[in-house]
């Protein structure tokens, strides 16, 4: 494989069909997900939103292959998911970077596991992505020397480096301060436009979801299921402080509150 083909944009269609998942807990069996159906198109940015316990992170783990559904099928470009794979990379809320490796070697970790590349090609790819997230000057730094936002950018570079078709993000910006977060919304949108990944983004912040997603999928808890899907037609790049965006997120928030209220009333 040449460097050129390695750096080409790739994307995939994600289909979730009739997925159910339950866990055993101290209070008996908990239905984390009940009959989830979702299609995500190639290159689409989809945000999963809902209160804690609605199973959105569970769904992300199932798509990542870190866990198996009790029922139903998850497929990427028609191929069923049976475990973790290089076509689906995950970014967690904690950056999950390895403190024993420097920035560059963290980005190299996944690349070294990718076959059919020479070592110099791998280094070129790692440099390309560090450049993409604007941290090429910090290649030799230790992880603890970076700020929270920089760490998440390294994590983004590490996830992008093996050139996955789908990027799975689990409350990736949740632990950052508001200013850093806003900056990263812009950067993520730009990188997504450049790299054309299919992105599944889990968050409990509705404005964040409206700012980033082509579609926002609203979940309700106990049992976790999809309540409603909103198409977000706002122009890119979106600014989280845009009034139109704020209005739309208030509307979605109202729907969510109504849903939770109805659930409690049941």
């Amino acid at each position: 494989m040449s460097l050129h083909t390695e750096l080409q944009n790739v994307t995939a269609k994600l289909v979730v069909e009739g997925v159910c998942k339950s866990f055993n807990s101290a209070n008996g069996r908990v239905d984390a997900l009940q009959d989830i159906n979702l299609r995500v198109n190639e290159g689409e940015f989809v945000c999963l939103v809902g209160p804690s316990g609605c199973g959105k992170s569970t769904l992300l783990n199932l798509v990542a292959g870190l866990d198996k559904p009790d029922k139903g099928i998850i497929s990427v470009d028609e191929a069923p998911v049976s475990g973790p794979g290089r076509d689906r990379m995950v970014m967690f809320q904690e950056h999950a970077l390895f403190p024993w490796l420097n920035v560059f070697d963290n980005v190299m970790f996944g690349l070294k596991l990718k076959p059919n590349l020479t070592d110099s090609e791998r280094r070129e790819v790692a440099k390309f992505y560090l450049n993409l997230v604007g941290l090429d000057k910090f290649a030799k730094s230790s992880i603890h020397e970076l700020s929270g936002g920089m760490r998440q950018r390294v994590a983004l570079a590490r996830s992008l480096a093996p050139n996955p078709r789908i990027l799975l993000m689990d409350e990736t910006f949740g632990a950052l301060d508001a200013l850093t977060r806003e900056q990263l919304y812009g950067e993520l949108q730009q990188i997504w436009q450049k790299r054309k990944k299919t992105i599944l983004f889990v968050t409990h912040n509705i404005r964040e979801a409206v700012c980033l997603g082509d579609r926002v999928v609203l979940f309700s808890p106990h049992p976790g299921k999809i309540v409603q899907i909103f198409d977000i037609d706002l122009p890119r790049l979106r600014d989280i402080n845009d009034p139109a965006l704020t209005a739309l997120s208030s509307e979605i928030t109202a729907t969510l509150k109504h849903q939770i209220g109805a659930n409690v009333a049941e």
Binding site: R88, F92, E94, F98, K114, P162
Partner: peptide, 20 residues
């Protein structure tokens, strides 16, 4: 989280023991 991150990047078995 280290082990989960490593798994998603394709590390398993002996590789995980040595490198993670």
């Amino acid at each position: 989280i280290y082990l989960r991150a490593a798994r998603t990047m394709g590390s398993k078995g002996l590789h995980t023991w040595i490198h993670v």
